[in-house]
Write a protein that binds this DNA or RNA. Structure first.
Lengths: 202, 202
DNA sequence: CCTTTTTCAATACGACTGCAATGTAAAAGC
DNA sequence: GCTTTTACATTGCAGTCGTATTGAAAAAGG
């Protein structure tokens, strides 16, 4: 058994357990022992694949990021080629919202990591890059819509992209806190999208 | 010395130390001993004023909430009586943004508490109420602006209020993560306010 | 004055933490 | 077949955690 093991698979197995613990008991309940127990393995094995707890946490966070990205690209590809800017933007943004239960869990983990990253510059840098990339894409689509005459010219694309991302992040946090239903968040987002791209033909 | 002590003063003294620890070492660094050391008192004294750690955390969170509220009402009163809806809304929202260093610290604490509350229903309920109150005020001002003909009639005041609060929360999180400068957040907020209340006469 | 109450300080306790060290079994390489 | 490497499991350690306990000093109430 020893030699032939898929390292990445083991690491994601552990990361998944970590996320389950974090999602329903909070990030401060994440310890080597709890994660190991949740994964059904020994703490020794966890130590074998992650030399430190911080390494484990970082990997888990990266996993969340990669999955989100994969989900987004899949949703975008499902739109077919050269979709309308508004449809693409809406797909990207709704993909960030915690609309169903598994995504709520992921959202809680992401929120915990967000707070965790406040005192960890290296972790924060990764989040910053992801967000910057997303803003660039959004701004690009807004520019495209402007060129096509589908968005008001006086709109600053960078500002509008920043607003969109901040809006969904804020909506996501509020939905996680159960301030209102996911449907409300969707409605609010759609209303805002209409102000950027013009009203939809229903 | 013993009998005559201002309990509330002692508790806020400790809560302030807690916030300092949380702001620059993260919430998981908040322990009775660390907080006591930061406050320059013994852990016994902390225990005297808070029977449990959770009680201490809850008090600190309430303190952040009360201070924010006090700051907001003071800023609103500085506007004089019957200010324009847009001015009032802008004052309220910019008051929630972490624009200077002390507010950044408070923001980091609030963010940590937000994640903390995800696994604590009671704490989450308090946040929910605060946010609901804020949304009501915002929606009310938007309605007033509509009645005065200063905001588009087709706007749903509740949705618009929800969007505004989500936007500032999102912007605040991004500013805390140093995704962009506070000035950018302000500019984005102002641009959005213009779409709700119409452009300002500079 | 003397008792009682409040305010704190010091310490001890058991549980838990991250991590290192050690041991063991099994497969790969020669 | 023998050595080496990989993959774990177990255990131990030093430290931190929240909290309970104990005790002392000091002021208020009688």
């Amino acid at each position: 058994m020893p030699k032939r093991v898929d390292h990445h698979a083991r690491r994601t197995l552990i990361a998944d357990a970590l996320m389950r613990v974090a999602a329903d008991r909070g990030l401060e309940a994440v310890s080597l022992r709890h994660v190991a127990a949740e994964a059904g393995v020994s703490t020794g094995m966890v130590q074998h694949y992650f030399r430190t707890k911080d390494e484990m946490m970082t990997f888990a966070m990266e996993t969340v990021g990669e999955r989100t990205e994969a989900r987004l690209t899949a949703a975008v590809e499902a739109l077919g080629e050269s979709p309308a800017p508004k449809a693409l933007v809406r797909t990207l943004l709704t993909g960030l919202l915690p609309l169903d239960e598994p995504r709520r869990a992921e959202g809680r983990v992401a929120l915990a990591f967000l707070a965790y990253s406040a005192a960890r510059p290296r972790v924060a840098a990764a989040l910053r890059e992801d967000a910057a990339g997303m803003r660039e894409v959004l701004a690009g689509r807004i520019r495209a819509a402007q060129d096509a005459g589908d968005a008001p010219e006086e709109l600053d694309p960078d500002h509008a992209a920043t607003a969109l991302l901040a809006l969904v992040d804020g909506l996501g946090v509020h939905v996680l806190g159960e301030h209102y239903a996911p449907e409300t968040a969707l409605a609010v987002l759609d209303a805002h999208l209409d102000t950027v791209f013009g009203p939809s033909p229903h």
